[in-house]
Design a protein around this nucleic acid. Structure first.
Length: 444
RNA sequence: GUGGGUGUAGCUCAGUUGGUCAGAGCGCCUGGUUGUGGCCCAGGAGGCCGUGGGUUCAAGUCCCAUCACUCACCCCA
């Protein structure tokens, strides 16, 4: 039997303990914020019926959905989930009688896309979604935006902006400018690259796609306004207020601004940006995206209102809005901005209890039990090695406190505690071991 | 799907016009230190030079193919 080269499939990753501690810190912080806003946890299977997923994302995205099979074949065509939104729609339709509406849920789970991986993009990655099902009013949109803003602030992000736009407003602008309906998707796709290629680039690309130059210029004039507050809305209202779609969507965004203020989201945190477009086709109303501009790293959250999606699983749809945190990118940026607290080391272990020799092994084991009882995460050394090796093990792993019980200590009923950071040592009675250890570790 | 880049020790990499080119740093192991980590010193283990073919007296080095990894584009988180 030849040895197998150890590796993961392309685009799939392992997370070693030091990474997991960071990821769990971020996820726990975010989860706590979600619950603070009253969102409930939901878990759905990694595998869905193919029919559940197909026809929801568009033909191109469908090619990226993983199919699943097993040795005996399968009567059912199965796929791995592509996002968490479509499974949510399925759950809502399937369990509506046992859910309370408005239904507010969060889910943090891996999703799978068979794309070619590159920096910050993987085939398995976590999505972190909050959605509100059953509320058509913009107060729901404001709440999911407030969740994002709160989570990012709690994680310590110094500066970010939630860009807000409206799907129908964008359509109205396109139609007003004279873009043929059939080319509206092209319009979205090009405008979406505004940050990257600028107004000139967008204009050039649209003209290459066959849209008349004067149409392009009129459209760009409308979307490139950069007025603070609701200034962009005022401008658009006077420019195309007689269009029904424009009037309605502008009114909604004005309502959203008021709701945001009530939710504690200040105008510093967001901006109405007519150049922001979301890729997915199912959005129907306000759309949002959070960007960090200092290093121009792209978006770290995105979402919007998708009032029709649940209708694909149910006679009548339900108004729904939600947002997804780009947790993988956020985790990368935590390192860039050095936002992790100091006490996230490379290990969960706070104290290592050494074993001097066979004669003291039981004393060490009992000390370890005592420390654990006292709420200290404790490792009992497992091998027969010299003390120096045991200290080395603690140091390399990042354990901050080492306990020694040799024959002398055992005879006197004491333990020697050493803090590795500064080499400080103290000998305490076994009965005081927990209190002293906690003190040396700065635990309360 | 398109276009670049890179494959040499566990890791990061050096290796000149083809000819002592099998190397460095870090890590690992042993000892200096038989009751104490980091720092220092001495020693040691570890490599089919991605794989297959070709050119040559001679290939880590040149050529072809192939696989893997990686970056960017398309698209997206």
């Amino acid at each position: 039997m030849s040895k197998v080269n150890p590796r993961t499939p392309k685009g799939f990753r392992d997370f070693l303990p030091a990474d997991m501690l960071k990821r769990e810190y971020v996820m726990n912080t975010v989860r706590d914020v979600f619950q603070t806003f009253g969102f409930e946890p939901l878990q759905t299977p990694i595998i869905e019926l193919q029919e559940t997923l197909f026809g929801k994302y568009g033909e191109e995205a469908e090619n990226l959905i993983y199919s699943v099979s097993h040795g005996r074949g399968s009567k059912e065509a199965l796929s791995m989930r592509y996002d968490l939104t479509v499974p949510l729609a399925r759950v809502v339709a399937q369990y509506e009688s046992s859910l309370s509406f408005p239904f507010k849920r969060y889910q943090m789970s891996p999703v799978f896309r068979g794309e070619r991986p590159q920096k910050g993009r993987y085939r398995e990655f976590y999505q972190c979604d909050v959605d509100i099902v059953g509320v058509a009013d913009t107060s729901a949109d404001a709440e999911v935006i407030a969740v994002v803003v709160t989570a990012l602030k709690r994680l310590g992000f110094p500066q970010f902006t939630v860009k807000i736009n409206h799907r129908q407003l964008l359509t109205a602008i396109g139609q007003y400018s004279g873009v043929p309906d059939a080319q509206l998707p092209d319009l979205y796709r090009s405008v979406d690259k505004f940050d990257k290629i600028g107004a000139d680039g967008v204009g050039r690309e649209l003209e290459e796609r066959g849209i008349a130059p004067d149409v392009v210029r009129r459209m760009l004039d409308l979307i490139t306004q950069q007025r603070p507050g609701t200034g962009n809305l005022d401008f658009l209202e006077s420019a195309l207020g007689d269009l029904e779609a424009a009037r309605v969507s502008i009114a909604q965004l004005r309502g959203l601004a008021v709701d945001l203020e009530d939710a504690g989201v200040t105008p510093d945190d967001y901006a109405f940006d007519l150049t922001m477009v979301r890729g997915l086709g199912y959005y129907t109303g306000p759309i949002f995206e959070t960007v960090i501009t200092e290093p121009n790293i792209g978006s770290i959250s995105g979402g919007g209102r998708y009032d029709d999606l649940i209708g694909l699983f149910r006679r009548e749809s339900l108004p729904t809005t939600g947002v997804s945190l780009g947790i993988e990118r956020i985790i990368d940026l935590m390192d860039v901005f050095a936002l992790y607290p100091d006490d996230i080391g490379g290990t969960v272990v706070q104290a290592l209890v050494t074993v001097f020799d066979e004669s003291t092994r039981r004393d060490s084991a009992r000390l370890a039990a005592r420390l654990r009882e006292g709420g200290i995460r404790t490792e009992l050394f497992m091998e027969d090695k010299k003390l120096g090796k045991q200290f080395n093990h603690a140091d390399k792993k990042g354990v901050r406190l080492v306990a020694v019980i040799g024959p002398d200590e055992a005879a006197q009923g004491v333990v020697k505690l050493k803090r590795l950071a500064d080499g400080h040592e103290q000998v305490v009675a076994l009965a005081d071991a927990v209190a002293s250890a906690r003190q040396l570790l700065d635990l309360r």
